[in-house]
Design a protein around this nucleic acid. Structure first.
Lengths: 348, 348
DNA sequence: AAGATTAACGCAAGCGCTTGCGAACCGGAT
DNA sequence: ATCCGGTTCGCAAGCGCTTGCGTTAATCTT
């Protein structure tokens, strides 16, 4: 087992207090003894016990990250980028994946974070008022990613504008019947995080301004997964008048959409344009037009904001609202002119 | 701030020791007082300070997971599944993503894990002897996933058999020129974890048994990513005699392979069969034939093994060697009979 | 009925570190 | 010589919990 302060103190002929101060570069230690203490600590392979200093200072040196289902690409990415920032700043990262409702309840009911972390990063899950209260009661610094919690420090993307932009792209191409596939709050509430409702609003707004009123029939919501996207597209395919384009709220769902279309022999983008959202790592290979929203940046910036809240010197940074960027690839094109009159897919 | 043991003790008219014992269901407390203490603790919203008990017991209640680059799908999956098991068992999970060499060095050089965790889960990164020594010196229970560290508790997949199986599949289809695209240790050593060298061996063995000796030209190694796969395939395409099938050591690389083939107008599986490895979440949509190796199971079982090492009662479970399963999809087929004589891609 | 168990509980000594405060010591100002 | 501000350092009191051991009281032995 590693040695303790006392060992170092004795070997260095100073008191433990001096060792403590020397090692943490606090004032009140002469240059000379500081060097000596450092050297001896090194020799002895001394590494301060976290538990000890935690107890004494109340600081834990750790940040908790609470996130929805990690197997979603988005959360993996964000976790990775946030984690790097935190670790670079010298913090440990404590991971709380709220993979299902049970886990979520356990987390919020359970064993208070105070004493485990110095701050909390909350990813894209809209805490209920009670949950928020629980979080606050620990009074730890909080930073939110993606959730619309007003007045809280964090980062989010301008979903409204992004929704508009995606819709505009399709409108500009000449589409008139543009469907929307949104993310439905999963039965298991934490699965996909909080659905980005504003994407829908932006979409509606753009369509309305263009004089297009698709109506309810062309708005479907499904679970955020390939399977969900697949189902959603199937539903859209039996609409009274099928759309010629569809804006899908996540790339993973868009993958499902593409699968369904392929299975149905519907050519993309010949018969149907598809635009996704995320710029998923693999959307490139599927040649999916999508909205990029700098996922990694979201993670790192949220982390940075939390750190600013924690370290006394750094001034609190203002909230960040990122705007998404259209990435044009091969799944969007002008509508096939005969669309709506045909019942059979033409050769590609 | 939450109350302390003393508060509870006072309100319950017992000593702190009794409170401590009662709350942890240790013997030596009457049923009656136990109830009372529990109730009062509840009322006071008392939650024991982790720091306190850590210092007193030396146990931390946390498990460290050290993993290569989390943005790789595989590690995200494994982390998620392992994390769930650990959290269910009441442990916190401490995440150490060794995203690059610098992080790796910092981790192994740095601040000893002892005092932070009760055990360590090491994902697919082959520690160097020195690193291993560092790890061991903390003498914490260790469990390994995927790395070939002999004699250590853990789980891995039988890469050798899997490599054979994949190759056999192609051989059985009638292919004779079968290439291999392997994972090259990334320049940044931790990026992709330890390359599964045995997949190559299994492949070679199967080919040799079938009397096929592809030779060095058909074995290429690249970084484990879509881009890497893409490059590897390009290299293969300028071989003296191009292969008719290729076994790719990861699905992500296989995606890159497919992209290159598509770009090159080479039909899959008409002109080229492709088999991947992982059964990546998205391989289904690309209709990629692949080897499934129950990724989630790997994570959860490794976690379970670590727990068995930690909790005194549970007997240590033996190592687990999982076998991969072929998933036949649409990217593998018998070779085109004219292959090698044609220079132009025939219509699909 | 007296001694031996056993159950229930309190005492107090840690666990390893931090930090406010006072002691000692130094050189320079009075 | 005396006083004073500064610097360097040690003392000791925690931080909140656990646990070995001792004490008491109740229950069992023959």
């Amino acid at each position: 087992m590693s040695s303790t302060v006392d060992a170092v103190a004795e070997r260095a002929n100073v008191s433990v207090s001096t060792v403590s101060r020397a090692l943490r570069d606090m004032p009140g230690v002469s240059q000379e003894t500081r060097k000596r203490v450092h050297r001896i600590a090194q020799e002895l392979g001394y590494v301060p016990s976290l538990a000890g200093s935690r107890l004494a200072t109340g600081r834990t040196g750790a940040i908790a990250i609470v996130t929805p289902n990690l197997s979603k690409w988005f959360f993996g990415q964000v976790l990775a980028s946030a984690g790097r920032v935190l670790r670079l700043a010298g913090f440990d990262v404590l991971l709380y994946e709220l993979a299902d409702t049970a886990a979520r309840e356990r987390f919020f009911a359970g064993s208070s974070l105070a004493g485990r972390a110095d701050g909390v990063l909350v990813f894209a899950l809209q805490p209920t008022p009670e949950e928020l209260a629980t979080l606050e009661s620990q009074n730890l610094p909080l930073a939110f990613l993606g959730s619309g919690t007003p007045g809280r420090s964090g980062v989010r993307v301008d979903d409204h504008a992004a929704g508009r932009a995606a819709a505009r792209h399709l409108i500009n191409l000449g589409h008139e019947r543009i469907a929307f596939i949104g993310i439905r709050e999963a039965a298991d509430s934490t699965l996909g995080g909080v659905p980005p409702a504003n994407r829908l609003k932006g979409y509606r707004e753009a369509l309305a301004e263009a004089g297009l009123e698709p109506g309810q029939e062309l708005e479907v919501h499904e679970e955020n997964s390939m399977a969900g996207g697949s189902r959603a597209m199937s539903r859209l395919l039996c609409a009274e008048v099928a759309p010629t384009a569809v804006f899908v709220a996540s790339d993973e769902m868009a993958f499902g959409v593409l699968r369904t279309l392929k299975a149905g022999g519907i050519d993309v983008p010949g018969d149907m344009s598809v635009i996704g959202f995320d710029n998923h790592e693999l959307s490139e290979i599927l040649d999916l037009t999508t909205m990029d929203h700098s996922v990694a940046l979201q993670g790192s910036e949220t982390a940075r904001r939390l750190l600013a809240l924690i370290t006394p010197d750094a001034g609190a940074e203002p909230d960040l609202v990122l705007s998404a960027q259209l990435i044009v690839r091969g799944t969007t094109a002008p509508p096939f002119p005969l669309r709506g009159r045909r019942t059979v897919t033409p050769p590609a």
